[in-house]
Simulated assay, not measured.
Amino acid sequence: MNATTVWLSATPFIAAALALRGVWLATRLKERSERRAEWWRRRAWAVERTADEDAYTSRIGAATVEALLTSDPATATATERDVIEAITLADLSHGEDTEGEPEHE
């Protein structure tokens, strides 16, 4: 066997390996995307709860946001984490600042 024959006989195996690698990468990206979408759905639910007028519900939302931020560090970027934290703290402090005060129109 010469080098050309060996190369030609190995070509289908190389093509199969590259195809499998492509399928593996696509599956991994899809799983990551789905995990991230679910994380963001949960985050939206939790942030909405932090703005609730009921203090207990608001605390549950804040605790859930905190748990989500620490659960999977790769899911949210550092900037996204900072934004979520700022929104949550603003919602919590807004509820505390206005408690007991008359509403302004």
Rank of each mutant, 00 (worst) to 15 (best):
R49D: 00
A16I: 12
T50K: 00
N2I: 11
T4R: 15
A15T: 06
V83M: 14
A46N: 02
L89A: 04
R32M: 11
L92E: 11
E103R: 15
R28C: 12
W40I: 13
A55E: 01
S33D: 13
L20N: 06
S71I: 05
V47Q: 00
T79S: 14
E101A: 11
H94A: 15
A63N: 15
S71K: 12
D72T: 05
A10V: 09
L68R: 06
I84E: 00
A51D: 03
S93W: 09
D97H: 13
A78C: 03
A15R: 03
H94C: 08
D52S: 13
W24N: 15
L89G: 02
T5Y: 08
E101W: 09
A51V: 04
D54Y: 07
T70R: 09
A55S: 02
T57A: 08
E38M: 10
E80A: 01
G22W: 04
R36W: 01
T77S: 13
T11H: 05
A63C: 15
K30V: 09
E105M: 07
Y56I: 08
D52Q: 10
V23N: 06
G95W: 06
A76N: 02
L18Q: 07
V6N: 04
E105H: 07
E66Q: 10
T5G: 02
E101M: 10
E85Y: 03
E66F: 02
R35H: 10
L20F: 15
R41I: 05
R36Y: 01
W39I: 06
E96F: 13
E85N: 10
A76L: 04
S58M: 01
G61A: 00
R28P: 14
E48V: 04
A17W: 08
V83L: 13
D82M: 13
G95C: 03
A74D: 06
L89K: 10
E31V: 15
A46C: 05
E34I: 01
I84S: 07
W40G: 03
W45A: 09
E96D: 09
A3W: 10
R32C: 03
I87E: 10
E101Q: 07
T70K: 02
A10G: 08
A16T: 13
R49M: 02
G22D: 01
T5R: 12
E105Y: 11
A78R: 09
E99C: 03
T98E: 13
N2L: 06
M1G: 09
A76W: 00
L69E: 02
S33R: 13
W7P: 14
Y56Q: 08
A86F: 04
Y56L: 11
I14E: 02
P73I: 03
V65L: 04
A74F: 06
A67N: 05
R36G: 05
T27R: 15
I14M: 03
D54R: 12
L25P: 04
P12F: 00
T70D: 01
A63E: 12
A67G: 04
E53N: 09
H94D: 14
G100D: 00
G95N: 09
E80Y: 00
H94F: 14
A90T: 15
A17R: 07
R49G: 00
A26K: 05
H104P: 10
T77F: 08
I87C: 05
H104A: 09
A90N: 15
R21Y: 15
W7A: 15
H94V: 06
A67M: 06
A67S: 08
A76R: 03
I60L: 05
A10S: 14
G22R: 07
T11M: 11
A16H: 01
E80P: 08
E38H: 14
P73F: 07
E101N: 12
